[in-house]
């Protein structure tokens, strides 16, 4: 069993999902140790910061038979634009957004500090599911890292979807975020978020703001169909070029 709850959920998923593991690639601008990744039995690329989704887009287009999972940080504080456009294009990727509150979170009673906001962080966090929906994601979910079963189930669904899936995982990082008074230890933090969450599947994404004094709403919010980038590319170019065009990577990947 993996110590990292998210990788653990991913590992469980990959065992059961019925997809050839060889074809699964993970790109991540977050560092994971080789010993945590190796048991997954997939290809792993630790990308320079912020470019995970753009890199994943290239991997997928380079070989449409791949199943690409892109890990990003808080909407990749860097590289948010890649998220927006991958959603718009409906690139066939699974994006796992590890929300560790580089942008802050105020579910606590007292102001939250981070190492980069010593005097407490006053900025508003992203409503990631709402953004993902507006960009055009076909599958959107949010869980805390202790919702292992639910997370695993969502990843399974996302891997079977055709198009851009976004799964937010509330998972505060202990290194930078040790600022909630009385909650110095990482496990305590994770438990804190788990306890302060409420499952509401299908909730309207505009109601998913993470706000002071309110519970974090988790669940699966969007599940819809849209043609992917490659679908549209093939459809359009076959129409224009006819026989001269060779469909790219098969119709459905």
């Amino acid at each position: 069993m993996n110590k990292n709850p998210i990788l653990n959920a991913l590992g469980e998923t990959l065992k059961k999902v019925g997809i050839d593991k060889k074809k699964v690639c993970i790109t991540s601008d977050i560092f994971y140790k080789p010993e945590d990744i190796k048991p997954l039995g997939v290809d792993f690329y630790h990308i320079h910061r912020g470019r995970s989704i753009a890199f994943a887009t290239g991997l997928k287009l380079g070989n449409p038979a791949l199943k690409v999972i892109a890990f990003i940080g808080d909407l990749s504080t860097l590289g948010g634009n890649h998220f927006v456009h991958a959603g718009r294009r409906n690139m066939n990727l699974v994006t796992i957004c590890i929300n560790n509150y580089i942008y802050p979170f105020k579910a606590t009673k007292k102001p939250v500090k981070t190492s980069f906001s010593t005097y407490s962080n006053f900025e508003r966090p992203f409503n990631m599911p709402h953004l993902a929906k507006s960009c055009g994601a076909v599958f959107v979910a949010r869980w805390t890292s202790l919702h292992t079963k639910e997370l695993s189930s969502s990843i399974t669904k996302a891997l079977h979807k055709s198009g851009f899936s976004a799964i937010e995982v509330i998972s505060p990082g202990g290194h930078y975020f040790a600022g909630i008074p009385d909650l110095k230890e990482e496990p305590d933090l994770i438990k804190f978020y788990y306890k302060n969450s409420e499952i509401k599947n299908g909730e309207e994404t505009m109601n998913l703001e993470i706000e002071f004094g309110k519970k974090i709403i988790v669940g699966e919010f969007i599940d819809r169909e849209r043609p992917t980038f490659i679908d549209l590319y093939n459809k359009r170019l076959s129409k224009v070029l006819g026989d001269k065009f060779e469909p790219y990577g098969g119709n459905r990947d």
Binding site: T27, Y45, I47, G50, R51, A54, F55, A56, T57, G58, L59, K60, L61, G62, N63, L66, G79, N81, H82, V84, H85
Partner: peptide, 16 residues
Amino acid sequence: EDELGSISAVMGASLS
């Protein structure tokens, strides 16, 4: 979406 995305996608496609 931009040049950062362009070249990052190029990296991915090359590794594919």
